[in-house]
Design a protein around this nucleic acid. Sequence first.
DNA 1: GTGAAAGCGCTAACAG
DNA 2: CTGTTAGCGCTTTCAC
Lengths: 332, 332
Amino acid sequence: MTTMSDVAAAAGVSVMTVSNVLNGRPKVGPETRVRVLEAVERLGYEVNLTAKRLRSGRTGAIGLIVPRFDHPYFGELAAKLAVALTAVGRHLAVEQSNASAEGELAALSHARLATYDAVLLSVVGLHYDDVDRLRSAVPVVLLGEQDMPPRYDHIQLDNEGGAHRATAHLLERGARNLLIAAGGDEGFPSMTTARTAGWRRAQLEAGLEPRPDGVIELAAYEAAVAREAVRARLEVDPSVDGIFAITDQVAFGVMAGVRDAGLRVPQDVQVVGFDNLALGEQLAPALTTIDPTHDWVVEHAMDLLERRIAGEEFPPQHLVSPAPLVIRGSTR
Amino acid sequence: MTTMSDVAAAAGVSVMTVSNVLNGRPKVGPETRVRVLEAVERLGYEVNLTAKRLRSGRTGAIGLIVPRFDHPYFGELAAKLAVALTAVGRHLAVEQSNASAEGELAALSHARLATYDAVLLSVVGLHYDDVDRLRSAVPVVLLGEQDMPPRYDHIQLDNEGGAHRATAHLLERGARNLLIAAGGDEGFPSMTTARTAGWRRAQLEAGLEPRPDGVIELAAYEAAVAREAVRARLEVDPSVDGIFAITDQVAFGVMAGVRDAGLRVPQDVQVVGFDNLALGEQLAPALTTIDPTHDWVVEHAMDLLERRIAGEEFPPQHLVSPAPLVIRGSTR
DNA sequence: GTGAAAGCGCTAACAG
DNA sequence: CTGTTAGCGCTTTCAC
């Protein structure tokens, strides 16, 4: 374990000069710099990030807290974020919040958040009050579709608009008997209510009254749950010719459920998802879906983070990303 | 920002006593303890993990370094690991290594590894020499199928055996013209060579000579690549009746490619994958595959980590997890 | 059972 | 341009 003092001794300078060289501060003579860098090289010195943070309050690390590691949506977002952060000399560590009931609170604890220069918090599954109680020593930017305390910067998708585009597309391609595979009304603004509203509005604008039994209520947004629900529904109601699935994972289940019922996608039933997971492109047929524009989210999240880290003061930003339609084979 | 001194002052004790209470050390009087805990509660104190680590060298955090966040295999492993670590009072942070060429080295730097009590390093894509050059201040346990320096603890799957079981199953279910969707021989022991060897051995044991053109060489283990390669192959060679895909992601592409060629799974071509990704179960037909037994890996990895963290000395362990067959609809 | 002193490795602030 | 001093918040050590 070599320290800065070791390097300083080896180079015949003070620790402060070593620190100045290593952090690229301007006031170091060129030959002193070379001598220090040689000593660093020779001793294999690497900075102790823990000590650096304790003193300076910075490490270059950004935290991303997601509800679960095994959902591809977060994996795809995290991958893009990691690349973008690496490009600006930072790095990303991802933590999972709701591995267990207590895990949720533990991951959000002051102490753990404080290990990062800033934190991106994905609020899926968190409630307004949980987040409102949060006290963080570092800047926090919220990501996700829940209604959240306005004092935070918050980036979300155009859920209503995306669902509207998805549904309008189904109608345009000739579907008339539309279902939505979603959840029940939770009584507060959420991804579910916003996307359901978009599905409803598109039909009203086309002069269609949404079917009263149009919502297939799913206990969980998982493929297996959707698959069984869709199969059961189609067996008693074969008139259905279009289904908007509230997420791509649900859409994967919907497509399997349609097949289980002996029907074909897209000839008998057209399907549109929401999330544009990489895998949707590889199915046969490939999934028509709404793109959550991760690049857009990453770009704007990083801008907010950098400005907050720099201490810039400005009112909390509430950004809504576009959510364009991606047309593939699951619609005609 | 309240510190331990603030709490000590509020409770009328020394910082040392606060530290003792908070860390459950035995030598504190019951009523002192209550007084301290009250002060902690009142002031909303939370420990500064950075300071704690600088002094004690421990934070309770375990690092998992994966090649990429957006591969579901790692997501599923990380999720299970996070749950298990939470249960023992630790927590998991996941970092991505090869977001870029330099990212790989950066993620493995001494400095970054040192922010954890121990590190699980997934070595997919890393070379023997990269890992051999690694100097870490904390225990490192290797995860993955590459050949690695024996001085590390290393957990891998039974690649050859799993591939053998997958192939034997295809033969048992009547397939006779077998392909493997894999990569070329890289000239060193790897996941590719081990799984290809298992595929070969199963055929030899059944009295079949593996076809010289039996390996569909994929430029990358991605669904899109496999899909196109399989479609092209089946169009010139319709006699194929069984394909072992080297990973589930490849298998997803293989199944789509079979359909693209106008054939059916499993009636015309049977398919077996390797990884048991959650999604494989939701396809129609569901994917027969080899289970990488994440639970087994997690259990053994945690055991090694805890013992190394505790400073226990023992020879490097090289463990091979079972890799059982999971039979579903993609085989008859 | 409790506390005082020392210092983990680094950097901010300032002196030279 | 370079060095000195002080101290981030905590735990280790050892004295009482």
